[in-house]
Design a protein around this nucleic acid. Structure first.
Lengths: 111, 111
DNA sequence: TAAATTTACTACGTTAGGCGGAGTAGTAAT
DNA sequence: ATTACTACTCCGCCTAACGTAGTAAATTTA
């Protein structure tokens, strides 16, 4: 498992990336993260929902209620154009971060 | 400049990596970081010294006073065997983190 | 049919790392 | 005498993440 101090700062990008193609809701997104990383990272519920709050506050996502006739009513999230822009910005920052950190990290298994 | 939320979690590793080969002190380490990253990242003084505190507390470094006859007396830091072990652990975690985050990031400039 | 589990959140309070701002202490250059 | 550079130190704030607990509705299991 990857420590959360390392993931801090990436949760927003991860969520936005999953919302790029379709709107979704908390539980589903959390499951997708666990699956895509093959269990290496699973976001905590509180972390997840506080990330939604932050993204909403910044206008990177909007929320709406689902209309399912069964189960508890879900809150869905949709990415906004601002959210997309922010996501692509952060992707570039990630490329930069990789080169910066690699300067200080020894890769034991060779290049 | 890379945001500090992204660098959070890496400051300790960066400092330890610079201490691998020889003991050093705050100002010098801060300068080395700025130089090695070509200005892309420069650690704040408060962040730097609180990182030292943390590393000392965890036994990853030890401190001693320099014996310079001029200028303000410097506090030097030396990495411990535990610090080395921790550093190499974190390097492996970094390799993992790279693959995990890359799952969610679109690289605009191709592979 | 009652109890347990799963889905889908919400609320509350704490911790840790990073940061801004200010201050201290010494030397060196103008 | 003032400014600048080196080398810290102190204080208090902010934010992301977390632990714990609780709510609510449906679905599964006993």
């Amino acid at each position: 498992m990857i420590s959360s101090d390392i993931m801090r700062g990436y949760n927003d990008i991860i969520l936005l990336s999953l919302l790029l193609n379709q709107a979704s809701y908390g539980y589903e997104l959390s499951r997708q993260i666990r699956e895509r990383t093959e269990g290496l990272y699973s976001i905590k519920e509180t972390t997840l929902y506080s990330a939604f709050e932050r993204l909403l506050r910044n206008g990177y996502i909007v929320s709406f209620f689902g209309e399912e006739s069964f189960g508890k009513r879900r809150t869905y999230y949709r990415i906004t154009p601002e959210g997309r822009a922010y996501y692509f910005e952060k992707c570039e920052e990630w490329e930069l971060t990789k080169t910066v950190i690699s300067q200080f990290v020894i890769n034991q298994r060779g290049k």
